[in-house]
Design a protein around this nucleic acid. Structure first.
Lengths: 258, 258
DNA sequence: ACAAGTAGTTGAGTTGAATCAAGCTTGCTA
DNA sequence: TAGCAAGCTTGATTCAACTCAACTACTTGT
């Protein structure tokens, strides 16, 4: 478990860790920043102590000062409803940026909590802002990340407003599969970092429904599940149930493609 | 109808229209750009011929080249599902920016269609990008708009995944009310620019359900409806049904507040 | 001014997912 | 390693919203 969590982390840990040598840099900095630019970015990034499962990276209402890149582990972001219920708005895997939705607020509009032992790179926003002025590529990268988040959110709205339970879960699994694949893990066998409860919360379904659909998908030979371990037996069929074509699941951005 | 649509438009129409004299500038450019900055922005903005009801501002897949500010009228943005159904992701009222979710794509990820006669200011993205490099305030303004959109999207997810039909419609009406108020219209009496069908599509409800809830709200003396004309009789109660506090409906951004 | 189509309302019946309830499994800790 | 709590699964029942259907009220075009 610990070894799996480390796979996505930087090659050399400790104080000497640099963006330039980080195995994630091609994902969290997909544009071709030149070496000098990377070096500048490197200098403002703080490496933090790992978060333990259940620790908060930040809480809704906390003073907004930094954005974060996940290095290993995973996070859930959630907002609170008036009656104290939580609504999960996102799960974050290694290389993904967290906290950009706080940019124009004095405080974070969501809470972010570790689902397992998790390490992040902290990027103080005020310094990022200064740096963005000098580095057009970096600035575009931030625009790009935000714009991707907006697009993903629209897809999520579609899911929540039009898809039934089976389609939601198929979409969720196919999406996770693509994200793991992109990060060099298997697209077919992976471990869910979140509970059934959290999946249901995120997808707008009751836990029981999540459980039932998992069982149904196993009967249909689409997946094989053992606790949190998932094996996708028929990826194509799963994507068909999801009602999406491959490219919709994780659309490569213009900048990555070029 | 036409006169109402014009209220939000620039004070002087025609070729001489300038951001500086536009009654919307405090909304679409809420930060304190200095006069020189506004002048620079002014030079890159194109005023377009009004769109007629049903005209597209752009279509999903169109080459991304500009973002737009609505001057008068209204737009709906929508994505297409695989089976050709549309999912409305947003309605846009005067002063709101449209098209920012295309920033890191070569093409718009959504379509945008006029709900009535609508005028927009076109801002060519390549030139905005150059300008953003020189004007930190403008750059922050763009970050800010995108980040607000992300926050709104999260609230929409909460609505779609946790709220029932009554809560959804109350939230929708309370939100529109706040947006009209902010633009100098009445918060209590306004005209819905969209059909019941479009409201249902947006909120993840059947048309019939929208209609029934409208009727129920009238019986409860929360609102009075006559076709597309809505009068809010008990705003406080409506907000209570919506399950939000006033500030959540249209959260002022840090930049506007400061 | 009228016909025809579109948008909105209302009622009846159906249904997919929620809720309630109970049993099972896993993992922690004392 | 026994005992307990939390997470997960499965079944039975309920219910909010959907679908289908019929009717009414507006538009719009000729």
């Amino acid at each position: 478990m610990s070894s799996q969590a480390q796979k996505g982390a930087c090659l050399s840990l400790g104080k000497e860790t640099r963006c330039m040598t980080c195995s994630l840099s091609s994902l969290c900095l997909p544009l071709s920043l030149n070496l000098e630019d990377i070096d500048q970015l490197d200098r403002i990034i703080k490496r933090r102590q790992p978060l333990k499962k259940g620790d908060h990276l930040f809480r809704q209402g906390d003073n907004f000062d930094s954005v974060y890149a996940v290095r290993s582990g995973s996070l859930k972001n959630y907002i609170m409803t008036n009656d104290g219920e939580e609504q999960i708005t996102n799960f974050h895997l290694p290389s993904e940026l967290v906290g950009l939705d706080g940019v124009d607020c004095s405080s974070y509009p969501v809470s972010s909590k570790a689902l397992e032992t998790t390490t992040v790179c902290e990027i103080p926003y005020s310094r990022l802002q200064n740096l963005a002025q000098e580095l057009p590529d970096l600035r575009n990268q931030i625009f790009s990340s935000m714009s991707k988040e907006i697009r993903d959110d629209k897809q999520m709205m579609l899911l929540l407003s039009k898809k039934n339970a089976e389609e939601r879960i198929a979409t969720f699994l196919a999406n996770l599969s693509s994200r793991f694949k992109r990060r060099g893990y298997s697209a077919y066998t992976f471990r869910l970092p979140m509970s059934r409860n959290e999946i249901g919360n995120y997808l707008g379904l009751a836990v029981e429904t999540v459980s039932r659909v998992f069982t149904r998908f196993q009967t249909l030979q689409l997946i094989a599940v053992n606790g949190k371990e998932v094996h996708i037996t028929d990826r194509q069929q799963l994507q068909q149930v999801a009602g999406v074509t491959e490219c919709e699941i994780e659309q490569p951005s213009k900048l990555i493609a070029s």
